[in-house]
Design a protein around this nucleic acid. Structure first.
Length: 838
DNA sequence: CTGGTGCATGGACGA
DNA sequence: CGTCCATGCACCAGG
């Protein structure tokens, strides 16, 4: 029923829609994470995009409360310390890409402030609220926070008394909240109060419950979030008062088919009619569209307490198109060794994609944001769907709304006046990811106002990407945690935006990761938020000597910098304190013309590739979010190849459940196919093998020649890479894997031969040969015989000689082969191939 | 056998 | 350490 689509588009996208159907002014407690710390404008980046990115970042910060506790540590540009990776081969690369080994801080640099309207009607509550608000952590606002970023923590007194009314009519109460919400700035920290005031209406506020009851005062997590603007508009439209009561993030159980919505005890006792019998009472609730639902409000005895639930909510939940707002990282573990994506959920294979947890922000059990790094990609997961309960006064009608995680950019934009400010925190970029979602479960990313309830606003059910994980401490959260599931749509969004993040992210000032184990896979988790800085380019020589190059914003000259330097968003020659002889724009460039060209070309290629990727991403959204996600997860290689290869007839990634000939075969498919078999599968395997051999050969030859080339020209052009590939290489400038370069080249070689290989492990140089699990007889055979022998057998003779010399072992190669086939991007046989074997 | 109901359990979180 | 609550599961009723 409550179809989000039907609602009108909301003005502010950054806001998290709130689910108040009803209107009224209630108290206001606003929470806004201001997350900007180190904003930087990369030289090759579109400033507008950056702005958007930054804005988004801020906008997305959903939660808040706990987040605010964190102190902004990355605000200072000086903190930026990039660990630059070295590029042994002297390739040009964006510094950003070096992140692979860089400890990136991802702590939410955001400081959040909440402000709420003061309601004198309940002084006692105010005091309490105030107290709590003040104790809320959200003080830190980063330097880069744009004015107007409303991160105020202001005590919000409950606006209406509730207890009394409870006994009378459920939800009925005579108190109204004031239409005007004076906001208090909790802390004056670097915040422009004036600006904030102006922004306030646009900010989604976590409002302390209107009628918080003393001891049972609701936890911040249950505070409804609604913007002042919304409240004002709603109240005005309805000519009544809407009292936001509480909000609850849907759990899997809540959104499941059981039809039971667990109500927080405090909320149930505060806003629902008192019940003494377990059976409870039927409660009528109106949804945002005006539909009336009757739920059974009851409780179960539980540990000498009560567990309150609303029964029969399934129809309503479904009508609002809500679904559990949590995500499941546990899925990740399930992916290990298999496709990075499973089902409709976004799953990243930490092993294959080198996904690491960079940091985590915890807000509530279901509001935890995890920053993950999959190769070059930094991903922020934050999903949250919530239902909100409000009361319309007079009358006490209970209204159930929903809020889907959405981010508004408008507010954000306003907040971020300029990039020059520098220091936007990394999360901004992450948040950006979510901005581009084409559509959410609810179908809307904006708040709608006027359609429901005669122009009442509503809510939004929010679904935000969230990866919840557990605490630090190296605990195995894999299969136990069910909160890390990311929907493919959200993943798609990531895909559309990861590039921006790439350009901006910088190593954190300092980072000592905590190791978190997820199903036996260790993830590095950082407490620090990512830092953004000016994009630079790194070059390195075989000797290990690295150079970092940055372009002056004023004169566009390239200046060499220490490799461990992180630049602010705006940087010019005058800021070049490392080379006083070139600290003015008039100073000649140190870099040679040719080198400069190479740098520029590399940069250009990269950008070009990004554009292509973006376009492709959009096109691919429809068909499969899974692949998109995979692409997003695999930077540099898979994605680039995928997108630039155009459509192919290749088999989609193999996933659990795939019934193609490859997947259905047992690991030891020996005997299924003869060596002379010419079925698609076998042909594919052969082709793959050939590709591998070619790569191997290529790599070897390159290794031999590289030193020489490096000395002459840091560019990779000489290696015969295509522009596109060069772009890829830029991204794959890992520092942690010395062999990455070789790998890249191998892949390039494969690509150049018409083969697209998405199976290469992004991080491991010898990935090609390290697959796990075999699926075809060909592979098995390969494992049991000398490589050259196999090559001959399958008709790959051209590479025989090389493989022998480079082949670590036949078994190893076998494993690799199998791995690749399994992940199958190169497996072109689709239905036909399968049929052949059936 | 399936689905609904009520309760129990244990992890997560707050005090 | 106590409380909350998400979820699992046993039990029961109906088909």
């Amino acid at each position: 029923m409550a179809d989000t689509k039907s609602t009108t588009t909301k003005i502010r996208r950054d806001e998290i829609s709130n689910g108040f159907d009803a209107v009224t002014g209630g108290n206001v407690g606003l929470l806004r994470p201001a997350s900007v710390k180190d904003q930087v404008v990369g030289n090759g980046i579109n400033e507008e995009k950056l702005l958007q990115l930054c804005n988004i970042m801020e906008a997305n910060e959903p939660d808040h409360f706990q987040q605010s506790q964190r102190v902004d540590r990355s605000a200072s540009p000086t903190q930026n310390r990039g660990e630059n990776l070295r590029n042994p081969f002297g390739e040009v690369g964006s510094s950003f890409f070096n992140m692979n080994k860089i400890p990136v801080n991802c702590q939410p640099s955001v400081g959040s402030f909440t402000y709420s309207k003061l309601d004198t009607s309940r002084p006692h509550l105010e005091l309490k609220d105030m107290k709590e608000s003040l104790t809320q952590p959200s003080l830190s606002i980063t330097l880069g926070v744009p004015l107007g970023t409303p991160n105020f923590v202001v005590p919000c007194p409950g606006s209406a008394a509730h207890e009394d009314e409870k006994s009378i009519l459920p939800f009925q109460q005579g108190q109204r909240s004031r239409p005007i919400f004076p906001k208090l700035i909790k802390t004056g920290t670097t915040v422009n109060s004036e600006a904030r005031k102006g922004m306030a209406p646009l900010v989604r506020i976590a409002r302390p419950p209107a009628e918080g009851r003393g001891k049972n005062q609701l936890l911040p997590r249950y505070w409804p979030r609604i913007t002042d603007q919304e409240l004002e508009q709603l109240s005005g439209d309805l000519n009544s008062t809407i009292v936001p009561l509480f909000e609850k993030v849907l759990s899997a159980s809540d959104a499941g088919r059981i039809g039971r919505l667990v109500l927080p005890k405090a909320c149930a006792e505060a806003y629902f009619p008192p019940i003494s019998q377990s059976e409870g009472l039927p409660v009528k609730v109106q949804d945002v569209k005006g539909n009336e639902w009757t739920f059974q409000f009851r409780f179960w005895p539980n540990n000498n307490s009560r567990m309150y639930v609303l029964e029969g909510v399934t129809p309503c939940i479904q009508s609002m198109q809500l679904r559990a707002g949590d995500t499941g990282l546990n899925k990740v573990s399930a992916l290990q060794g298999s496709s990075p994506i499973i089902d409709s959920n976004l799953l990243l294979n930490p092993t294959q994609f080198n996904m690491k947890i960079l940091s985590r922000e915890k807000f509530t059990p279901l509001f935890t944001t995890y920053y993950l790094r999959a190769n070059f990609i930094l991903i922020k997961f934050h999903f949250c769907n919530a239902v909100t309960f409000s009361r319309i006064d007079p009358g006490g009608q209970l209204v159930m709304g929903f809020r889907k995680a959405t981010n508004s950019t408008d507010v954000q934009d306003a907040k971020i006046p300029t990039l020059s400010n520098g220091s936007h925190s990394g999360d901004a970029s992450f948040s950006r990811v979510f901005q581009n979602l084409p559509s959410r479960a609810g179908g809307d990313t904006s708040l709608h106002k006027s359609e429901n309830f005669g122009g009442m606003s509503n809510h939004v059910s929010g679904q935000q990407p969230i990866l919840t994980m557990e605490k630090k401490g190296a605990r195995n959260i894999g299969s136990k945690s069910k909160r890390l599931l990311m929907h493919s749509e959200d993943a798609l969004e990531l895909r559309l935006t990861w590039e921006e993040a790439q350009d901006l992210l910088r190593p954190p000032p300092s980072a000592n990761p905590t190791i978190v184990t997820i199903d036996d896979h260790e993830f590095e988790e950082y407490d620090e938020p990512p830092v953004f800085g000016k994009r630079t380019i790194f070059t390195a020589r075989p000797t290990g000597e690295q150079k970092q190059w940055a372009q002056c914003d004023d004169c566009s000259k390239w200046r060499r910098l220490p490799v461990d330097v992180l630049l602010p968003p705006k940087w010019s020659c005058s800021d070049n304190v490392w080379d006083l002889s070139r600290c003015t724009c008039s100073a000649p460039e140190e870099i040679s013309t040719k080198e400069q060209e190479n740098l520029l070309r590399a940069s250009k290629d990269f950008k070009k590739r990004k554009i292509v990727k973006s376009q492709k991403s959009i096109q691919e959204l429809e068909p499969s979010g899974l692949d998109a996600l995979a692409s997003a997860a695999v930077l540099g290689d898979s994605i680039a190849d995928l997108q630039e290869s155009g459509t192919t007839t290749r088999h989609p990634r193999h996933r659990p459940g795939c019934t193609c000939i490859v997947c259905i075969q047992p690991p030891s498919g020996k005997g299924k196919h003869k060596s002379t078999c010419t079925c698609n599968v076998c042909l594919t395997v052969k082709r793959r093998f050939k590709t591998l051999m070619l790569r191997k050969k290529k790599r070897q030859s390159e290794r031999e020649v590289e030193p020489l080339l490096k000395d002459r020209n840091p560019q990779l052009d000489e290696t015969g890479m295509s522009g596109t590939l060069r772009g890829t290489s830029l991204q794959t400038n890992y520092s942690e894997n010395e062999g990455s370069q070789s790998r890249i080249k191998d892949e390039e070689a494969a690509n150049s031969s018409g083969q697209i290989d998405l199976n290469c492990h992004p991080d491991r140089e010898d990935m090609e040969l390290e697959g796990a699990g075999l699926s075809t007889m060909s592979l098995v055979e390969a494992a049991s015989q000398p490589v050259d022998s196999y090559s001959k057998q399958i008709g790959v003779s051209s590479v025989t000689s090389e493989q022998q010399s480079s082949q670590p072992s036949s078994v190893e190669s076998e494993r690799r082969l199998s791995g690749e086939v399994y992940h199958g991007s190169g497996h072109e046989s689709t239905s036909d191939g399968c049929k052949e074997h059936h």
